[in-house]
Amino acid sequence: SAVWSVEVSPEGIRIPTGSRFYIDNLYFQYQSDGTLKCETSGSIGNGNFAELPLLSLDNIPGLESVIFEELKIPGQEEEDDEALYERYLMRARREAVSANKAHYKKWAEEVEGVGRAKVFPLWNGEGTVKVVITDGNFDVATDLLVNKVQEYIDPVPGEGEGQAPIGATATVESAKWKDVEVSVSVELKMDYSLEDAQQEIEEKIKDLLKSLAFEENVIRMSAINDILYHADSVSDYADVLINGEAKNLPLQDIEIPRLGQVNVIEQA
């Protein structure tokens, strides 16, 4: 379920945990940490609600307004059969056992709101593990989500109070953005405009970059070329550049790609 931070007025007013609020046919419950959690699971709770007010369904003396601030944990749809099968295979093959790398990855991805996790053993000496996560949209995770994973895996370093064994110190962090710019000159197919090509290419590159998050450490020219080759609006293309260069763009281990500007120029 989606979790939002909110601005409450007047500041400091006490809102009982479990109080219910309403907007656009959706109900949200107030959590003990001061956030609102959507009662309907899935991406429907990720709507464009920022800065919109909610209607309180409970009588809360003195409450003037509750306004959405920021989507802290994006809601996710139920996993598909392929994802479920991959989790089954990991368990059946006993890949995630005895606090190995796969086990830390499994623990992190068990936390509601986490998309993917990457594990770095011995990152800061004997007994240390770093776990880097994305949110369910394969975007950079918020502090709220990072803290949830930290609490689940290792709330008190080395004490074995979470999933991590005694003596192991786990540090959970968010992935970092790597901004990506793409430029290309195109020859348009009949009945297509430059705006059509721009929109189509942007959408397909965004989908590509999402699929690469923590799965690949490089953005390949061949993948961009494949998008352009199969684009409905493009007859021919040339001069493809990724971040100003005609070569693959490597990603650091903790980086996930984010599409910035796409420059599509019509060939003369």
Rank of each mutant, 00 (worst) to 15 (best):
A2P: 03
P10S: 07
I15Y: 04
G18E: 03
S19L: 02
Y22C: 01
Y22I: 01
D24P: 04
N25R: 13
L26I: 05
Q29S: 15
S32L: 11
G34R: 07
G34A: 06
L36I: 14
K37W: 04
E39M: 15
E51S: 13
P53M: 09
I60F: 06
I60Y: 03
V66F: 05
I73N: 00
G75R: 01
Q76K: 12
E77R: 10
E78D: 10
D80I: 05
E95S: 13
K101F: 00
K101N: 11
E110C: 11
G115Y: 01
K118I: 13
V119F: 05
N124A: 14
G125S: 11
T128N: 07
V132N: 02
V132G: 02
I133Y: 01
T134A: 08
T134R: 11
N137T: 06
V140D: 07
T142G: 11
D143F: 10
V149H: 02
E151C: 06
V156H: 06
G158L: 01
E159W: 11
G160L: 08
A164P: 00
P165G: 04
G167S: 11
T169D: 10
E173C: 07
A175R: 09
K176F: 00
W177K: 15
V180D: 04
E181N: 14
E181H: 07
V182Y: 04
Y192L: 08
L194G: 06
L194Y: 02
D196G: 02
L208T: 01
S211I: 06
S211W: 03
A213N: 09
A213S: 15
E215G: 05
E215R: 12
N217A: 14
I219Y: 08
R220I: 07
A223Q: 10
I224G: 00
L228V: 02
Y229C: 01
D232R: 12
D239S: 15
I242K: 05
N243R: 07
G244Y: 07
G244V: 08
E245R: 14
K247E: 12
N248K: 05
P250D: 05
E255V: 09
E255T: 08
E255D: 11
I256F: 09
N263H: 10
V264E: 05
